[in-house]
């Protein structure tokens, strides 16, 4: 019996191994890693000493870009070969599809977006946010096999140096796969601080009247050394930004989050729950966002943000 770890970003293996250790302590077995795609395989040294006993690698050209059916076929054969009972992955849209296919192939339970994991009386229990992140559900796994998708940041990365993993290189058989990837266009990442890594985030919602007004957010974010972002309608409907802050987009956990012109839909507020301090600026004193804020200013963001920028500049220039 073994535990398999698969991440779609090489840096996440060292977090997942700590989730794997919980399962290993309770159920025994080895923890194996599976790494797919040439670029990831190239970075394999970074995860070689985190406590994986073996790392199985696939670096065939066809695997450089994600194809759920091809990836699932690839992993499936490995799971059978190594008698895998538990699979741990980072929670992402890609892995939801991959794990959905795999769980059907393996006849296993599947829990996504896991934020807590423990074993009680030999029962595996997972907790995950539901209902747009307004509530959390405890789920008890009632199957011999399970795939668990762990939210990134839930487990701290393994920093201790462990015994070096054995590397096993594998080839794939692609003849059976019906799904064809025609084209991949990577997300355009704007320069500057990344949303999910920023200490300060300034968010804008429908209170902003036009795209040019995003410069207010950008200026405030830049003086605070942070990142800026928008809500779903601004990104998905108006196309003002490539991604949005919210449970269906980027979840953030900065020290300070400033929500401007944002009403506070559950979809958005559940994505900002990890923020230490939340400030909301909104015209409408009844806006739900004020219930999620530590400090709220009822007023016109077009007057308040420039004033805030001005005063922060004064402080900075001393």
């Amino acid at each position: 019996m073994s535990i398999m770890i698969y991440a779609d970003k090489i840096d996440l293996y060292s977090e997942l191994i700590n989730a794997g250790n919980i399962l290993r302590e309770a159920f025994g077995g080895d923890i194996l890693g599976i790494v797919i795609g040439e670029n990831n395989v190239k970075s394999i040294d970074r995860i070689r000493k985190i406590g994986l006993s073996k790392i199985i690698t696939f670096s065939a050209n066809e695997l450089n870009e994600f194809n759920p059916v091809l990836y699932a076929e690839t992993i499936k054969n490995t799971l059978e070969e190594f008698d895998v009972r538990y699979v741990l992955m980072n929670s992402s849209y890609k892995n939801k599809i991959l794990s959905g296919l795999l769980s059907s192939f393996m006849n296993s339970a599947l829990v996504v977006d896991v934020i807590r994991l423990n074993v009680e009386d030999n029962k595996l229990l997972a907790e995950r946010p539901v209902y747009s992140g307004k509530a959390s559900a405890k789920e008890e796994i009632n199957a011999d096999k399970a795939i668990l998708l762990i939210k990134s940041g839930v487990f701290t990365p393994m920093t201790e140096e462990k015994t070096e993993a054995e590397i096993i290189e594998k080839l794939i058989d692609t003849s059976k796969v019906s799904l064809e990837l025609l084209e991949f266009s990577p997300k355009v990442v704007e320069e500057g601080v990344k949303l999910d890594e920023a200490d300060v985030v300034v968010g804008g919602g429908r209170g902003l009247r036009k795209k040019e007004d995003l410069k207010l957010l950008k200026e405030l974010a830049s003086i605070l050394g942070g990142a800026w972002g928008v809500t779903r309608p601004l990104a998905a409907d108006y196309g003002w930004a490539p991604e949005w802050i919210g449970i269906s987009g980027a979840s953030i956990n900065p020290k300070l989050y400033i929500a401007t012109g944002i009403s506070g839909q559950p979809q958005h507020t559940s994505g900002i729950r990890g923020s230490k301090v939340i400030v909301a600026i909104n015209m409408d004193s009844e806006a739900p966002i004020f219930k999620f804020a530590d400090y709220g200013i009822v007023g016109d963001l077009y007057q308040i943000i420039p004033k805030l920028i001005e005063k922060l500049k004064e402080i900075k220039e001393g």
Binding site: I278, K291, A293, D294, G296, I297
Partner: peptide, 10 residues
């Protein structure tokens, strides 16, 4: 569990 300190700048 937010503090919900509201300041009025209308």
């Amino acid at each position: 569990k937010r503090k919900q300190i509201i300041l009025d700048a209308t």
